[in-house]
Design a protein around this nucleic acid. Sequence first.
DNA 1: TGGACGATCCCCT
DNA 2: GGGGATCGTCCAT
Length: 199
Amino acid sequence: MQKLPRSFYLRPTLQVAKDLLGKYLVRAYRGRKLICKIVEVEAYRKDDPASHSFHGKTKRTEVMFGEGGYLYVYFTYGMHFCANVVTGRGGRGEAVLIRAVEPVEGVKVMRKNRGIGATEKMGDWEKNLTNGPAKLCQAFAIGREGNGTDLLGDEIFIVDGDKLPTSMIGRSSRIGIRNGVEKQWRFFVKGSKWVSRKS
DNA sequence: TGGACGATCCCCT
DNA sequence: GGGGATCGTCCAT
């Protein structure tokens, strides 16, 4: 499968968001490859009160204001990291938050990274692995040092996958924000058990 | 220099 | 379904 080219990320943010569904996020980790299919995303745009870039460029949001195709990782709630794909030609401060993914390869390692032990109650541990933005960062061992990673490099990248029919793509308000809730900029794969919540 | 707040998660009820 | 954990970032003193 082909690594997505820079041009993929330079397109309009909402388009990139929708097209990321069904693509594969790959992480080179200690000589292995961790692979997950993207099943839920949110778009954050310029002039969007919910976006970190809304109040202008700061040290924290510097990567967001760069060229598309780089990873913007931020720290929140004193304990969690979330990963975004920067979009556009640069200077706009737009990105797509990866909210949930479906494990494909490296489940054992991801499980270890998430701290889900062998004796853990089995119930829904598989779903619990990556059904949220901070969970997938933990499973992929993506932290502060992942901020600014070039997605055309070999550490973290995205490869082509299924082209999903429109009928399989759900749309809703974004989760966990106060301003901009009226915008329907969350996209997800209908029926996937890894989608972070019903809506 | 301090305080309010957050694109979340987990555990408890 | 609700609240506590926990700390970096940003803006106001």
